[in-house]
Design a protein around this nucleic acid. Structure first.
Lengths: 147, 147
DNA sequence: CTCCGTATTGAAATCCATTTTCAATTATAC
DNA sequence: GTATAATTGAAAATGGATTTCAATACGGAG
């Protein structure tokens, strides 16, 4: 039942003092299985297939929990719903996202550490983190008819 | 009355077929005068000082208009309100934003064009645009007591 | 300068994502 | 098993953003 969760998710959650309940497992599994960034509503829809009584609120709470544990990324999307993806697929927060299907691909991001230090030197800011997002159309969606 | 607007904003808006009304001027002026990225609510608050009858709806509509004309950037911020800044201050969408005061600084962003082409080659995506955001604390806010 | 047609406005209503509240439920330690 | 504290889901509340529509004001024609 838990074996199809990503490496150590179960332990991490338990160690952090959280219970591994059925609703949570449903949400976890959905995220684990998707390489595509999902809206909250989509996570809810999919997770319901595993646990029909699942409430939307629990989806929000579980996503928040996963976010705090660093297991998922939240993509600061456009107006109308944030997107979530497994963090272990994209450890550095450098993503290429398809505007049509939300497929997310990790970008090999050379030189950003260096650039960060350079920027700190120039501006006096204390940089705490970064987000690099490229967006466009993935190969599959380029073949489709929509623009 | 219009002279303190950034270069050509007035003409651009007129040429695009829009009227330069008092409510719009109020909103324009607020954005023109701020180097800091502003929430919609903050724009509303400040613009009211110039034109008290100004409705929040008009702020949204005007920001949208400016966004379409490319005169402002919308920063895909965290949950709870998007931020807007003059686009001419940050032509490439590479920003360093203070988490405390929302001051936005343009990042000299070398090598990103190259990286984009490289990524397109590797992934087959058609890249349409990008967003690079560093966040941290500006020098002034580092001195403050809050974290 | 005045009049007119039309774009624009603001208030209210609505929409939709997210959060809060709280009684009922359920996972885990004993 | 039982106790107990975390967790859940429904409903209500919140808050950002959008839609609707009658009233208003811009800016060209006269």
């Amino acid at each position: 039942m838990l074996e199809d969760l990503p490496e150590g998710w179960a332990q991490l959650i338990r160690r952090a003092g959280y219970r591994l309940t059925r609703p949570r497992q449903a949400v976890l599994r959905v995220l684990a299985e998707s390489e595509v960034a999902l809206t909250v509503a989509e996570v809810h829809r999919r997770a319901r297939a595993r646990y029909p009584r699942l409430g939307l609120v629990t989806v929000y709470r579980t996503l928040d929990l996963l976010l705090n544990l660093g297991l998922v990324h939240r993509l600061p999307g456009e107006v109308g719903g944030q997107l979530y993806v497994r963090a272990d697929l994209h450890p550095h927060g450098h993503l290429l996202i398809c505007r049509s299907c939300h497929r997310a691909v990790e970008i090999p991001c050379t030189g950003l550490e260096e650039m960060t230090h350079e920027v700190e030197r120039q501006t006096g800011f204390a940089v705490q983190g970064h987000w690099l997002e490229l967006f466009g159309l993935c190969p599959a969606c380029q073949e489709g008819t929509d623009g």
